[in-house]
Design a protein around this nucleic acid. Structure first.
Lengths: 213, 213
DNA sequence: GCAAAAGTGTTTCAGGTACACCCATGG
DNA sequence: CCATGGGTGTACCTGAAACACTTTTGC
C-alpha cells in the first residue's frame, strides 16, 4: 500500500423508481417518507449508502427493497452524479442517481406514486436530481432498450407506448409515427395480435413484444 | 445522526486530459507512469482519491496538477462512473471519469501525449475507461460549448476545427458543412479575420471566436 | 500559372412531422 | 350508424451529406 490515505466522501445511491400505470395512462415515480433525521417524515427518493465493494445496481435494489418495500426490480442504470458538498446537512456526500423500473403487472403498494410533472417538495436536493435527470430519462426512451423494456414490460400495446412517450417527453406523437419509430428499435417486434378493445370503444391496439428478454 | 454506519467504497477520480495539438493536427491524451504500486511505472490516466467534501472538478484539477505536472486546466466535466469491484487490486474502488481540457497555446511538457486511437496498454481498467468514454467525448463536440471551447481555445480557425472533429469522430467533414454546423453553435461567431496562410500554400482559413468567455 | 486548401452555392437524400383516409370496436 | 381511437399511406419540410465551382494563398 503506497497510495496516500485520504478520508473519502461517503457515496449515496439515490434511485428514480419508475412504474408505468396503464389505468392512469402515465409513468409514476416512487417516493417515501424518510424514517430518520435529517428530514424525518419528509418525502424523498429512496437512497442508501454504498457499501464497500457493493455494485451500484445492487445498492439500487437495496434502496428500492428497504425504503419502498417493493420486492422486484426489472432493470437499473446510471443517470448522473451530484457532488454539491452541502447537499446533505450531515456532511459532504456524493450522490449517484440511478433509474430503476418495476414490472407494470406486479403490485406496487407501499410507496407513494407521483407524476413526474407533479413531484412535491422533497428532502435534500432531490427535486434538483429529479429535474436534472428528467431529460436524460426522456432521451433513453426508445434508445436504451433495457430502460424501455423495463418500463413497458415484455409485451405492450401501441396505446401503452403512446402513454409512456407522452409522460416522459411531454407530447403525444401520432400513433402512425410512433409505430415507425418502434419498427426501428432493435429487439422489438410487431406481432399480429391485437389487445382487447377499450371500454369506450375504438380499434384494439397492436401488441408489441421484445425478441430478446 | 440516525443513519446506519457503513464502511464506504473509496472514490477515485480519473481524468481524460485532452489537448489540441495544432502542429500534429490532432487531439492528444495525457498519460503518466504510476509512481506507486500497484502498476508502478506503468502508464495510466492521472487519478486521485476524492477527499471528503472535495468537488469532482477540484479533484480533477488536483490529478492533473500532481500527476501530470501541468499548471492550467481550462475546463472539466463528468463522463461516467465505473463500479467493477475488482478494478483495483487493493480493494473495491469506484472510479468517476472526468474530462479536462488544456489551453492549446500553453506549454504541455511533462506527461506523455498519445493519440486517442493509439493508446498503449494502461494500468487498472484505464483502457476500458478510455474506450467507453470516447463516444461520449465525440458526442460533446459542438454540443457542449464548455468542452468545445476548452479544447479549441478562445479563438481558432476552420482548419483547427476540422482537425479536432476528425480526431474525435473519426472522419473529416467537408469544410463547408462544418462551417454551417458551427454557425448553429450558440456563443460561437464567425469573424471577418483570416489566419496566416499555411506553409504549403492554400487559402487562409477563417477565424472563429466565442462571444461568451 | 499551378497546386493546395478553404469558402459558396446547389443538388440530393434521409428522417421526422403532419394529415387525410381506412379499419375495428362499443354503444 | 355514429363516435372513438388505432393503422396505412402519403405529402411536406427540414437538416445533413455530397459535390461542382470559386477564391486566396505559396511556389
Amino acid at each position: 500500500m503506497n497510495a496516500p490515505r485520504i478520508e473519502s466522501t461517503l457515496v449515496s445511491v439515490d434511485v428514480l423508481t419508475l412504474r408505468f400505470d396503464a389505468e392512469a395512462h402515465t409513468v409514476l415515480l416512487a417516493i417515501a417518507p424518510r424514517a430518520f433525521d435529517p428530514f424525518a417524515g419528509e418525502p424523498a427518493l429512496p437512497g442508501v449508502l454504498l457499501g464497500k465493494g457493493e455494485r451500484l445496481r445492487d445498492a439500487a435494489h437495496r434502496a428500492v427493497t428497504t425504503k419502498l418495500g417493493l420486492p422486484e426490480v426489472t432493470a437499473t442504470g446510471q443517470l448522473a452524479t451530484f457532488d454539491e458538498p452541502s447537499r446533505d446537512p450531515r456532511g459532504p456526500t456524493l450522490s449517484i442517481a440511478l433509474w430503476a423500473t418495476l414490472d407494470p403487472a406486479a403490485s406496487a403498494s407501499g410507496p407513494t406514486w407521483t407524476r413526474l410533472s407533479d413531484v412535491p417538495a422533497l428532502a435534500f436536493d432531490h427535486n434538483r436530481i429529479v429535474t436534472d435527470c428528467r431529460p436524460i430519462l426522456a432521451d433513453k426512451l426508445w434508445r436504451d432498450p433495457t430502460f424501455t423494456a423495463g418500463l413497458l414490460g415484455r409485451e405492450f400495446t401501441t396505446a401503452h407506448a403512446l402513454d409512456v412517450t407522452e409522460a416522459l417527453t411531454g407530447d403525444r406523437p401520432y400513433p402512425a409515427n410512433l409505430g415507425r419509430t418502434m419498427d426501428r428499435v432493435p429487439g422489438l417486434e410487431r406481432t399480429t395480435q391485437h389487445a382487447a378493445a377499450l371500454p369506450q370503444g375504438g380499434r384494439p391496439p397492436l401488441v408489441w413484444r421484445w425478441t430478446t428478454p
